[in-house]
Design a binder for these strands. Structure first.
Lengths: 220, 220
DNA sequence: ACCTGAACACCGTTCAAGT
DNA sequence: ACCTGAACACCGTTCAAGT
């Protein structure tokens, strides 16, 4: 075949196929040969569009970050930083939960990924705009990412085996019901995320009030 | 050589070598051949001691969980659940931070790993003992794991590139200082963890007080 | 510019053969 | 029981050759 008149591949087509493969079978299923086969080309063709496999996975991760809604940060009153943070967290988590296998790549940080940087920019900007000191705004961005990526990285409930005999009462006196976790997986994980998010925001609000005694939101 | 009089390998020796390799060069550096070479044997020898590579990595992960201090859960007054949770979180994070490359394996949940199950058992038991309803105790175990593994999975600050030109002000108006994050990495991540942990515990305490109005700690 | 097949240096795992 | 080398079906990536 050699070079066709019209390119068979494009970065977008490769990312699309890689995303589908990651979602369907996990990170380990993505090999350059397998991915190329899925696209109807030979393995080395991919190297005309990406420098290496890691760059492909970075692009897959960034395609997830694009899905994160950021509108709450420019539409709302700066004083509603708590509500904006809450809504953003839900959107972020929903985006990650739809593509759990790519979370480890995403959790490495934005690096040079444009959508990842846009997320960081929006959160930091909104927190500073709401009156948080910059150093504290940075920490908020970090701790929210810790919590959200941690919750998306793996199901808590699904991390326990389904098998009652795995929990010997002599070894684990309090895990007598742990074998039931797996089947209530969604409920447990969702509940934990909600409780944790509320606790985080309550706790941050308390800290904000302490700052509020001595400073006020910037004019913007 | 065939079979030696005294076994050349043991599960412990394999786990030790694998841990060292993971810590020094990351998960990708661990291949069965490389690991075997490090131990002075041929690749297939490992299969006399572990069913497959994943089981080796599981054992490496569990060796990290063993390092997590749980003494605060049986020594303290059940009413001091906040302080116990705080101290446990610090110990857990310290153990993970010392072996960041294995965190993705650990974050899949305890599965059948004994040390992972002991951690879950201790936290759940202590929260129930302190008067939390079991469903809420489960959520606390989950949300703490989200936050702690999320914080250990990758540095927040280190996820930003060092290069000022990566942050075009037209694209990212608030990231003008982001290139400085990498060099203040430890400080930023540690600060975010502390602020987040405090916020979480403050928020949980608030929820606890709401429950406390209508119930009291179990006799145990 | 963009695709190909061949090639290189790797993988995880199985298995018969050795003691 | 515990190690070996050979073998199988894979990897990521480079590169010269084709149009």
């Amino acid at each position: 075949m050699a070079r066709p008149r019209k390119p068979l591949l494009s970065r977008d087509r490769i990312v699309e196929a890689a995303s589908a493969l990651v979602d369907a079978e996990g990170l380990d299923a993505v090999s350059t040969r397998r991915l190329a086969a899925e696209l109807g080309v030979s393995g080395p063709s991919l190297y005309n569009h990406f420098r290496n496999k890691d760059e492909i996975l970075d692009a897959v991760a960034d395609a997830v970050s694009v899905q994160v809604d950021l509108s709450m940060f420019d539409e709302s009153d700066p004083r509603d930083w708590r509500e904006a943070l809450h809504d953003w967290a839900l959107s972020y988590r929903a985006a990650l939960a739809a593509h759990p296998h790519i979370v480890p790549v995403l959790a490495r940080g934005p690096g040079r990924r444009p959508a990842g940087l846009r997320v960081a920019d929006a959160v930091f900007g909104a927190m500073v705009g709401a009156g948080w000191p910059p150093a504290q705004a940075t920490r908020i961005g970090a701790l929210m990412r810790y919590f959200i990526t941690g919750s998306a990285l793996g199901s808590f409930a699904g991390g326990f085996v389904d098998d009652e005999s795995a929990y010997d009462p002599a070894d684990y006196p309090h895990l007598g019901q742990a074998h039931l976790l797996a089947e209530r997986r969604w409920e447990v994980d969702e509940g934990a995320f909600e409780v944790g998010l509320r606790a985080l925001l309550d706790g941050l609000e308390r800290q904000y009030e302490e700052y509020g005694a001595s400073s006020s939101p910037s004019a913007g």
